[in-house]
Design a protein around this nucleic acid. Structure first.
Lengths: 337, 337
DNA sequence: CGTGATTTTGCACACCTATGCAAAGCCTTG
DNA sequence: CAAGGCTTTGCATAGGTGTGCAAAATCACG
């Protein structure tokens, strides 16, 4: 095993001092002449700056901690892949932290400790289920944080979500003009801002249209819970369900069709939220509100890097609008065809 | 922003030397008395060893590079989540590297360079699509590598897969005893060992049973390609299709049912491979060979850590058997009901 | 060519921990 | 009690880079 090539080796070969080499590679000022000599020597020796040493001294690791809880909902793998890619392009790297199911205080603390240990430059909290405590602690540790697909009112934290209230309202409009008379709602987890916002936007618009919601049940972003919730609403004889995310919507559709033998959208119209890739599969062909993952991720990355590079930067709260995607799981109003 | 507390601070407070502190925290020998003093002082000051400095000097980062290509196939998010969790438990951390679609030589080199830069202790190559060049280069760089769900004959690299040939054979047995007469095969990408092995195991067993395969088409682990392949085989009037992975099987089922109006399994039986969570959704209810992700990941982690901690450790090739999961997408033989 | 302003360069140190080495401490045993 | 073996401890240095500071070099300009 060969010894690593260091900046001293390069310096020796180029006939300059080590600091000159350092300056060339860290982008500080240097004359064209020395820069050329250094680069040539570096290429010849196959030199690459030691990231660890660099991080040790600058205190910046160029590593971002990405905290996720549950990748079973295909929205998150998609996001994760994009995060990794986008961050790579910005010269950062992604370290994944998985927070266990029952995220106890102890687990949370351990994860934060690990992120601090690795001197992560910034943190993306990318899961609805993550308790507020985690966010607060990260913030307290003095590390830039951005909440992804998750809000926290009055926290002063940067956050990027889709326009959830507006999205909910869009669904209300759509189901209303589709002529549905008994509309129910399998809500996203009401302990999360996304869940609450979608629900509120939906209910408010429905009320504004002069129509009551037949019932609201919390599906907790969980398969089994969603099915249970749907059953409760079906007992109230609904003809349309707005389901808080696609993941639950699939479970509900399966249940309606396979277990209960109902037709979607014949007997019940279903509308989801997210537009995960699977929503366009023919088996579901789900009408849903698209969360523009690509733009959400890009926005998150930019916001985070801004905070990292300019510590005084304001923590922004961004909402990104997404369209309602019309497919076959819900009756389509006349005019929209 | 407070200065970090260092081992010197702890040493001063405990009345010992810095090396004593270091020894206590790195598990080297120390007397009970000093260990107690050090720990007490450390707790009081909130000291934690600086991972970067430690890595710099030991040359071990306790970071594992996880290289993935495509998270659209839900098999991989599942694996990723488990990797992150299991590695965390072993005191390692996961840095995700995404290799772009058309993995050119340049991209590959850049990724390896980045992993070397971060002095990753080990690498998991977790994607069928990754070229052999990448694996070879990692190996050449002297970093322990384990191929996950991907083989490479004669490479001398450690690898963990499911028993793909055997799995293929199981499907052959199953379709045969189901009384199918015209069996076709939408193969996994034949440029990958998993794809080839499943196909070979399937065809060999079929031949041994005295039955020909009506046709084999490469679906390249891609939605559109799989549909195209299925069309070619349907032209040959098949009554059963073994599809190289679940992801493609979903596409094929959608195509058969929605576009062509065929019944599954009435007109055509479909069998997949992987048993991703979605396979059990009622909309597909896919009969498939389970890849035991949990055990595959655990095995990979152990193999990798063995290699890291004992550089002379043999690179093992492990195959893990998985059962055929009977569901509703394929006609079930009399006796098995 | 001389003077002052500006850029470039090298020196030395900081970042924080692990570890080889020798001295010091302890325990054991005859 | 002395000698010898083992454990513990402190000293000093390595690991590879970035950066403040002062000296040196370059430049502009009269």
């Amino acid at each position: 095993m060969m010894r690593r090539v260091t900046s001293f080796d390069v310096a020796a070969r180029a006939g300059v001092s080590q600091s000159a080499v350092s300056r060339v590679f860290s982008g500080a000022s240097a004359s064209k002449a020395t820069a050329d000599k250094v680069r040539e020597a570096a290429d010849a020796l196959g030199y690459r700056p030691n990231v660890l040493a660099r991080s040790l001294i600058t205190g910046r690791s160029r590593i971002i901690g990405l905290v996720v809880a549950y990748l079973g909902n295909p929205f998150y793998p998609d996001a994760l892949e994009r995060f990794s890619r986008d961050l790579q392009e910005e010269g950062y790297h992604t370290m994944v932290f998985t927070v266990p199911e029952g995220a106890g205080e102890v687990d949370t603390d351990r994860i934060i400790q690990q992120m601090l240990d690795h001197q992560v430059d910034g943190i993306v909290l990318a899961s609805v289920g993550l308790g507020d405590a985690l966010a607060a602690r990260c913030e307290a540790a003095g590390i830039p944080v951005v909440l992804f697909n998750r809000g926290q009112a009055g926290s002063g934290l940067a956050q990027v979500t889709s326009a959830n209230r507006l999205g909910g309202a869009k669904v209300a409009d759509f189901l209303f003009s589709g002529g549905h008379l008994r509309i129910g709602h399998v809500a996203g987890w009401q302990g999360s801002s996304t869940g609450r916002d979608r629900t509120e936007g939906f209910l408010e618009r429905l009320a504004a249209l002069g129509r009551d919601c037949v019932g609201v049940e919390d599906g907790r972003y969980d398969h089994a819970e969603a099915v249970r919730a749907a059953d409760l609403l079906l007992a109230k004889d609904v003809d349309a369900l707005f389901v808080g995310n696609d993941h639950m919507a699939f479970a509900v559709m399966d249940h309606l069709r396979s277990t209960l033998g109902l037709s979607v959208p014949g007997d019940v119209s279903i509308v989801g939220y997210d537009d995960v890739p699977m929503a366009s599969f023919a088996a579901y062909d789900l009408t849903t509100v698209r969360q523009p993952v690509g733009r959400m991720v890009k926005t998150t990355v930019i916001a985070l890097i801004n905070q990292i590079e300019d510590k005084s930067a304001q923590a922004e709260v961004t909402e990104i609008d997404g369209p309602l995607i019309l497919r076959g799981s819900a009756r389509i109003p006349e005019g929209l065809q």
